[in-house]
Design a binder for these strands. Structure first.
Length: 272
DNA sequence: AACATAGACAACCGCCTTATA
DNA sequence: ATATAAGGCGGTTGTCTATGT
């Protein structure tokens, strides 16, 4: 009865992923695609559960991820969407190609919430804060409202960035003036030993077809990540591949329309 | 130099819905 | 029809790094 278990859970590795593990997962997915997450760790030679692999791929390894800090415009859009949708992070993230729900959720919790509070706006209701009531809630909050925020780090490097600068990708990162470019140097390290043609082809296909709304910055960063590996063949997409991409593009448009309908329905239910 | 603290974000946990044997 | 795992999602925790003392 039922499905097979997702994994035997014995001897599974947890915690931060190593570069070797990333390498194995990326290599496997680019060569075989994603059919079933349960089988991927075993086939890819990873001591991880399928769920962990899925998360790692979606939040960190996908070639079409847009890296770097969120812009002011993106932050504003997140605030607007949050006012409409609440904490439905995956729905919010669907409006930002190349951004993950985890990334947006983290950004909301660490920065935007604070920013809104400073501006006297309740991040939960998006309405002006009732200061008297608010001040009774906690001393910490009072501190946040009345005292200047101490910025210990104005330009904190992400873990990935720091990793980049202390490893083989250092030279690439040093040459890149753009934040997103330095981040993508990581992908160069990853792709150094495996099928770089396949990797670059995948990035190219994704940037050209799969994500029609992909920003210039994202496109540029993808190109940079494969700059050492781009070959003549990478730009020649096979007809069958184009067909697939067209299908995926149509799916994405359909998905956008469904998203909009779902949002409208959500708002109707909320206000009726 | 060593320790404490804060901030950022990757990773995990648990729940819910969907799919399947 | 039912039980159970997969997949997906949001909340929370853990880890790492920068900065302050």
């Amino acid at each position: 009865m039922g499905r097979q278990p997702c994994c035997d859970r014995v001897g599974l590795k947890r915690g931060p992923w190593t570069i070797e593990e990333d390498h194995k997962l990326v290599h496997f997915i680019l060569n075989n695609g994603i059919q079933c997450w349960r089988t991927i760790p075993k086939l890819a030679g990873l001591q991880r559960c399928g769920k962990s692999c899925r998360l790692r791929w979606i939040n960190y390894l996908r070639p079409d991820l847009k890296r770097g800090a969120l812009s002011e415009a993106e932050e504003d859009q997140i605030i607007q969407l949050h006012a409409r949708l609440g904490n439905r992070w995956s729905k919010i993230a669907s409006h930002f190609p190349g951004r993950t729900d985890n990334e947006i959720k983290n950004h909301w919790n660490t920065r935007i919430k604070k920013k809104l509070k400073q501006a006297g706006i309740d991040p939960l209701t998006h309405k002006p804060i009732d200061h008297e009531k608010y001040q009774q809630e906690s001393d910490d909050t009072i501190m946040e409202l009345n005292l200047p925020i101490h910025h210990h780090k104005t330009e904190t490097l992400s873990r990935t960035e720091t990793y980049d600068k202390s490893n083989e990708a250092e030279n690439c990162a040093a040459n890149a003036t753009d934040f997103s470019l330095s981040n993508n140097a990581y992908h160069n390290v990853l792709s150094e030993n495996f099928d770089v043609d396949l990797w670059s082809k995948s990035c190219k296909t994704m940037s050209n077809c799969y994500s029609p709304t992909l920003s210039l910055e994202a496109e540029e960063s993808i190109k940079f990540s494969t700059v050492s590996a781009v070959t003549e063949s990478s730009s020649n997409i096979e007809p069958a591949e184009e067909q697939d991409s067209l299908q995926q593009w149509m799916d994405s448009i359909f998905s956008c329309a469904v998203n909009q309908l779902e949002e409208d329905l959500f708002l109707l239910r909320k206000y009726n």
